[in-house]
């Protein structure tokens, strides 16, 4: 069955949010979500890198790996593409826009090991999306991730000065907030369905 790319885009943001239903990108999600500004920076970087790497990986997978029958090398190839792309973007931004480099730059190295980026590429292969579907899936997942980290950062800023049981301070509380957010996102599940 052919799913419209636009449906995939919406579903990737809301119903199958890569963070809240597939649990990808949790490490940086928990550690960077202290402030809204830095979350926005990281979220934008993830959105940007994810959109482009799914596109590049799709092309490489279908034009190089499949014809040569070396699909089992996909993990290594994908991670190299992601790392190289991040490095390239870092150099370009540093060269052309120092302002952007100071806001986004520090997050770029973190992204290479963000599992959401690799995860999006792997999901696109497993679910057998075509090119347009893959690109919109990558963009949607990136936006969904941005949305989730912004929401968590906003909530964490508000609860910062409230009383929290000792053992729950820090990661424990963030996990519970994320769980409640995930519960909320289940409410979208009637709207669009993929998978």
């Amino acid at each position: 069955m052919e799913i419209s790319p636009f449906v995939i885009f919406l579903a990737a943001i809301f119903t199958s949010n890569i963070l809240l239903t597939n649990f990808l990108g949790m490490c940086s999600f928990l550690s960077v979500s202290r402030e809204v500004e830095s979350s926005l920076g990281l979220g934008m970087a993830v959105f940007f890198v994810m959109t482009f790497t799914t596109a590049i990986n799709y092309i490489i997978y279908n034009l190089i790996l499949v014809p040569l029958n070396i699909v089992y090398l996909q993990y290594i190839i994908f991670i190299i593409v992601i790392a190289a792309f991040v490095q390239l973007i870092e150099m370009l931004i540093e060269r052309f826009s120092p302002v952007l480099y100071y806001t986004l730059g520090i997050f770029l190295p973190l992204i290479t090991v963000n599992c959401a980026i690799l995860g999006a590429s792997l999901f696109m292969i497993i679910r057998q999306y075509n090119f347009l579907q893959s690109v919109l899936y990558g963009a949607g997942s990136g936006l969904g991730w941005l949305l989730a980290i912004l929401a968590l950062a906003g909530i964490r800023q508000r609860v910062r000065y409230n009383y929290v049981p000792t053992g729950l301070q820090g990661a424990g509380l963030s996990l519970i907030i994320t769980g409640i957010m995930a519960l909320g996102f289940i409410g979208f599940s009637g709207v669009v369905v993929i998978q």
Binding site: L20, T21, G167, L168, A171, L175, I176, G179, I186
Partner: peptide, 15 residues
């Protein structure tokens, strides 16, 4: 479903 995974891990860390 997904949310319980978050809750269970939080409880484990708490304990």
């Amino acid at each position: 479903m997904a949310p319980s995974a978050f809750f269970m891990l939080a409880i484990l860390i708490w304990i």
